[in-house]
Nucleic acid binder design. Structure first.
Ligand SMILES: [Zn+2]
Ligand SMILES: [Zn+2]
Ligand SMILES: [Zn+2]
Ligand SMILES: [Zn+2]
Lengths: 138, 138
DNA sequence: CTTGAACCTCTAGCCACTAGAGACATTACA
DNA sequence: TGTAATGTCTCTAGTGGCTAGAGGTTCAAG
């Protein structure tokens, strides 16, 4: 049994974040000492590692809730888990596409001015003022 | 002179968002009718278009504030504008890198399970529980 | 037994909006 | 001119995923 600070160190999740996960229902309500402090065991550590890993991969709290729910019912179909993962992947791909478009425009805009002129003639400012200077939609 | 709704239509920025920009100091305080409703002119339209475009490119409200400030002083050096743009570009590139790593892991995880089994044997859930199954850091 | 670190709860703040309540203004049409 | 529909006003609160701080209590080492 270890404290919340110890759990925090082992998982690299900050103490207030662990408490937040408890409030959100991701972490179960921890056992308490007689003085009301949280104590965790291996199960708590594994649960938090799962959450941390999923968060690192960009899953939302809500998605993680569903995944944990599934995990706690080993006999249920895992269809939902796969769906959550593929939709997460799709979301990431959409974001990448969007960012690549932005990257191209921003790169063009940045290159257009060396920062040695005056605001009036600045290509950065002109570009922002006029989307027609952009190469594509974004 | 046109209403906030009209401005909204022309810029595709929602009405409450326009008011929000005013509170944030991005939009100047609009003129008012005798009945206290906002009225805008060409200058307001151009300002909002600038903001919209910059937001579409991912600039923060704070960054846009600085850019507008520069724009209003045509004689100042545009160095700051270039810096803001390049740091925005850098931020986008960092995000893309991160997302590409995530994409690879998520793609592997997704492929690992067709969703026809049972939660206990689910590769998606197993992967989330154990970062050692991942190919790289993320 | 004392000190100091760690812990507790609660509230508020971050960003860039978005939604809703309840009241007032404007516009179109009869 | 009357009226009804739509638009607008301000204000407050909510979103997601935390993070920071206040003010108090508990624990562990020496
Ligand atoms: Zn410039
Ligand atoms: Zn553009
Ligand atoms: Zn599965
Ligand atoms: Zn991993």
């Amino acid at each position: 049994m270890f404290s919340i600070g110890e759990l925090s160190k082992r998982t690299n999740v900050k103490v207030p974040t662990i408490r937040y996960y408890e409030v959100m229902g991701l972490m179960p309500e921890a056992e308490r000492t007689s003085g009301n402090q949280r104590r965790y065991d291996k199960a708590g550590l594994e649960r938090l590692s799962f959450i941390r890993h999923a968060r690192d991969l960009g899953f939302s709290i809500e998605a993680i809730s569903s995944l944990i729910e599934l995990q706690e019912h080993p006999d249920r179909s895992c269809e939902a888990a796969t769906k959550i993962a593929t939709s997460q992947l799709e979301g990431v791909r959409t974001k990448i596409k969007r960012l690549r478009t932005l990257e191209k425009e921003l790169s063009r805009i940045s290159k257009g001015c060396d920062g040695e002129g005056v605001s009036e003639d600045c290509y950065v400012l002109a570009s922002l003022a006029d989307h027609n200077l952009c190469d594509r939609e974004h």
